[in-house]
């Protein structure tokens, strides 16, 4: 079968229109989960079918797409989604954050601040932040409608009671524009401050759960906390061993069988950019840059 058998970006125009309508509704009501009729995509659910459908609905032939998974462009998941759109939409792709007009991401927000005109698409496994304490969908919908969010703090209370601190480190719940409580997808809480006041449009897609939600540019996004246990966007207490960055989110990498390890930027494009500009970390290879 030739690629010409697909409509642009795989989905038919009626489906894309339906998703765009849901996204516009989401943008009009920041943080509100909008139901949409999720389509079967030629990839398993865990692979970000929600994000892929949102990206498909946003792409135009002139766009440049970047796809990242845990900050990296070269994981199997990122590569296969990028290839999917190269094949079905023929759009240009890039690994450079600044060069992309649409960025689909799983688990990270790029370190480099995004700008107006860019769209950041998140892959979301579980869109409902109240789910873990209240499994009934009818009840969580009512709680959102009536702003009954005490339960979110019960979750944080349980965290502090059990661990002495708010131990939630991924998918840390936020309140959007003082109204809807939202799950920011499993990004590290280190990234939460970037959600707020971002110049780019942020779109969230959950395929299996058939929900999209959105943050228009410059939305106010606050991480939930207690007065005496304030939110802290923590990261590993190191500098990047490759580029020396002190304020970027780090992955711990095992380097040998003898327990050797190093910390490197999880955002590979950010790290490479710094090294290209001559920044060096503790373990940067000799002769580089």
């Amino acid at each position: 079968m030739t690629d010409a058998a697909y409509n642009f970006a795989y989905l038919d125009e009626a489906t894309k229109r339906m998703i765009r309508r849901a996204l516009l509704k989401g943008l009009a009501i920041p943080g509100y989960q909008v139901p949409f009729a999720s389509r079967e995509m030629p990839m398993p659910y865990g692979w970000g079918t929600g994000g892929v459908q949102v990206t498909a609905a946003c792409l135009t032939p002139g766009d440049t797409l970047k796809v990242i998974d845990q900050g990296a462009d070269d994981t199997t998941n990122a590569v296969s989604i990028r290839k999917f759109f190269e094949r079905t939409a023929g759009v240009a792709t890039t690994e450079r954050t600044a060069g992309a007009s649409v960025i689909q991401t799983r688990h990270r927000i790029p370190e480099k601040p995004l700008t107006e005109g860019q769209i950041l698409v998140y892959q979301v496994p579980i869109p409902e932040p109240l789910r873990f304490l209240e499994p009934r969908e009818s009840e969580t919908r009512r709680m959102h409608a009536l702003e009954e969010y005490g339960l979110m703090h019960v979750k944080l209370y349980e965290d502090v009671a059990r661990h002495g601190a708010i131990a939630t480190s991924y998918a840390y719940p936020v309140r959007v524009e003082g109204r809807y409580v939202m799950d920011p997808s499993p990004i590290p809480k280190f990234d939460n401050p970037k959600l707020s006041g971002m110049a780019a449009i942020q779109l969230f897609g959950a395929g299996r759960e058939q929900r999209v939600y959105a943050l228009p540019p410059y939305s106010r996004v606050v991480s939930l906390d207690f007065e005496d246990h304030p939110f802290e966007p923590t990261k590993a207490d190191h500098d990047c061993d490759l580029c020396g960055a002190s304020a970027s989110y780090l992955d711990e990498v095992i380097t040998d069988d003898a327990g050797g390890r190093m910390f490197v930027c999880s955002d590979t494009d950010y790290c490479a950019g710094r090294r290209a500009a001559g920044q060096r970390g503790r373990l940067a290879p000799e002769g580089e840059a």
Binding site: E148, H153, V154, F226, E227, H229
Partner: peptide
Amino acid sequence: GNVGERLMAIGARNY
């Protein structure tokens, strides 16, 4: 957490 829920529901934010 069970006892605290109603307090948090009406805005208590000091753990």
